[in-house]
Each structure stands twice: as structure tokens, then as C-alpha cells.
Simulated scan of single mutants.
Amino acid sequence: MQDLTLAFADHLRRDRRRSVHTIRAYQATAERLMGFLEGHWGGPVLPEGLKLVSSADLRAFLAQRRGEGLGNASAARELSAVRGFLAFAGGATPRLKGPRVKKGVPRPVSPDEAVSLAEDVAEDAAEPWIGARDLAVLLLLYGAGLRISEATGLTGAVLPLGETLSVTGKRDKTRIVPLLPQVRDAIMAYVEICPWPISRDAALFRGAKGGPLAPAIIRRAVQAARTRLGLPERTTPHALRHSFATHLLGRGADLRALQELLGHASLSSTQIYTAVDAAHLLDVYRNAHPRAQ
């Protein structure tokens, strides 16, 4: 069992170029599944036995995980990891719908949801370099507050990357945004394995045939990922930019600084995030304060 899960982790690292976080999480899921099946079936599980895994087995596994406190998005990601492991091991891949999330009041995507979404999109890509590309684009939206058109409009002139990034937004207005190490690493991981040469005047992010990446490709990938993860319809690429702004505001960023980071022409465009943050705080208050009801 341990040899198989270690081989799975090595496959994710070597062939799929997944992040350390994803490898650790997916290997842990594979180990949990194997341990569960041993108890569920009443004996050791050999690799060839994975061909017998049924939808009922997976439902029982997820039910146990949900009983341990797993939320909908995490349960959907657990199911995605299970499918990846079974496919790698040559086992059965029974069809099973992931958990659904009830629609509610629009609110920012949480940091965990943002990262889970980006990594799930990357993991579902047809090729490793496409997965690395999608991860880099989505981390730019959440980690640097870029519009999707701004991310896909970047050229090779931004290389080599430093601690900041020059972005041209609406009305050809240029701004400077900080580049987090995680975002920089994701971009460079993509650049290293991109099959197309990246010159200064060519698009940084390429489509499957080598042309500039179309924003619609990322939107479709995000739509599919949020369905797999059970995330609400509000979870769009632009929602990642909104979350970047809301989370910065919640951590003490002032509106003027936020205006510059987002590339808003007027302060009034930025003030919307004050209302979003206040609504979130009010929701927390109503659910947590003993006298709020």
C-alpha cells in the first residue's frame, strides 16, 4: 500500500509537476482511501483489487470523511484526489457526483477556496504545461489582483520577474503590483516547461496551439472546476480579483493603496469593497454573536 501511494506522489511530482501542497494532500487522500478499503472490505487491498472499487465504496468513504467534519468543497477535492489515484493505479473510476453547495448571498472566495480552485484547474489540464499555465494565471488574479484580460495580455517583456510586475490595464493605464513569491514561482514553473518560445513582444501565456491564451479558456476551466469542487456560481475568475481586494481591505489596506493596486480610475470604484467587507463582517457577527438573533 505504501509503495503504491509513494509511487502516486512521485508521479504527481515528476510527471504532473504538482505543487508540494497538492502532492502532500493527494498522497494523504490515497493513504486514507487504502486504509478505509482495508477496513471496509475486511482485508489487505492489493493494487489489482482497486479494479473492484464501486460507487458505493466511494460514497461510504466520503460519508466517513464528512463525518470527520469535511466541508463540501474539501469533500469534492477529496473525491478528485481519489479519482486521480485510482486512474494512476489502474483501478476502477466509478462515476459519482460531488457534493453540492447551497446558493447563498454572494461573498468573497476564501483563501482556501481560491487556492483549491487554482490547483484543481491545473490538475485537470490535458498537459502538464497547460496546468502550470492555468495555475499561474489564476494565482495572478488572486495574488496580484489582475483582471483576466490583464493576465492574458502580459508579454515576455515581463521576464525576468522581480518583486513587482508592470501591468497595463483599462485605458492603457500602467500600474505596478507586488508579486508574491508563490505567484512568481508559478509563472516561472510555467515558463520553464512551455513548449513555445517566449519573446519580449509575444504573449506570455499561450494557447494549446501556440497563439495568445484566450480568457474564455480560463473561464471554462474555472467553471468546470467549481462544479467538481461544489463551489457556488459566484466563483469566477473575476471573483478572485474581488477576493484579493476584500482580503487586503480586511487586513488593513487603505482605499487609496487599494485603488492603485486594482488600477481603478476613481476612488468611488474602489469603495465598493468597503461595502463588501462590511457585509461579510455583519454576516460573521450575526452568526457568532449570542445577542445577534
Rank of each mutant, 00 (worst) to 15 (best):
G35N: 14
V20K: 08
G145T: 01
Y26G: 01
E68M: 11
R24Y: 07
T93M: 12
Q64E: 14
P111E: 10
T22M: 06
L33G: 00
R95V: 14
L117Y: 02
R83C: 00
S74V: 04
L135I: 01
V115A: 09
G49W: 10
R18D: 10
R17F: 14
T93C: 13
A56Q: 13
V101Y: 11
D112W: 07
D134L: 03
F85S: 09
A75S: 15
G90N: 10
L52I: 09
S55I: 00
A126V: 12
S74L: 08
A89M: 07
L96C: 07
A28H: 08
E31R: 15
M34T: 14
D124C: 09
L62V: 11
A25K: 04
F36S: 03
L50G: 06
R59L: 11
R32P: 01
S19G: 07
G49P: 08
K51H: 04
A56M: 12
K97L: 15
L135N: 06
E113Y: 05
P94Q: 09
Y26F: 12
F85C: 05
P47E: 14
A28N: 08
L62D: 02
G98T: 04
I130G: 02
A114W: 00
E78W: 02
Y26S: 05
D134S: 12
S116T: 10
S54P: 01
R133L: 09
R100Q: 15
G104H: 08
T93A: 04
A92Q: 02
Y142W: 05
F36K: 05
D57G: 01
D120T: 15
G104D: 10
A76R: 10
V20G: 03
S74G: 11
A87T: 14
W129F: 09
E48C: 07
L46E: 15
A144L: 00
G104K: 11
E123Q: 15
R59C: 02
T29E: 15
K97F: 06
A25W: 04
E123V: 08
R133S: 06
V121K: 11
G145Q: 06
L37H: 08
P94S: 10
V45W: 04
F88P: 04
A76G: 15
Y142D: 05
S74C: 09
W41M: 11
L70F: 12
F88G: 04
Q27S: 10
K102Y: 12
P128F: 12
L37G: 01
K103R: 15
G131D: 05
I130K: 13
R24E: 15
E119S: 09
E127Y: 10
A126E: 14
L117K: 04
R32T: 04
A73I: 01
L70I: 03
L96K: 01
A56H: 13
R24T: 15
L96E: 07
T29N: 12
A60V: 11
P47T: 10
I23G: 03
E38A: 01
R83P: 00
P44H: 07
G42F: 06
R24M: 12
V82R: 02
L146K: 00
D120L: 15
R100T: 14
S80T: 13
L37Y: 04
L79R: 03
S74K: 05
M34E: 13
A25R: 06
A75R: 02
L138H: 03
A73C: 11
Q64H: 13
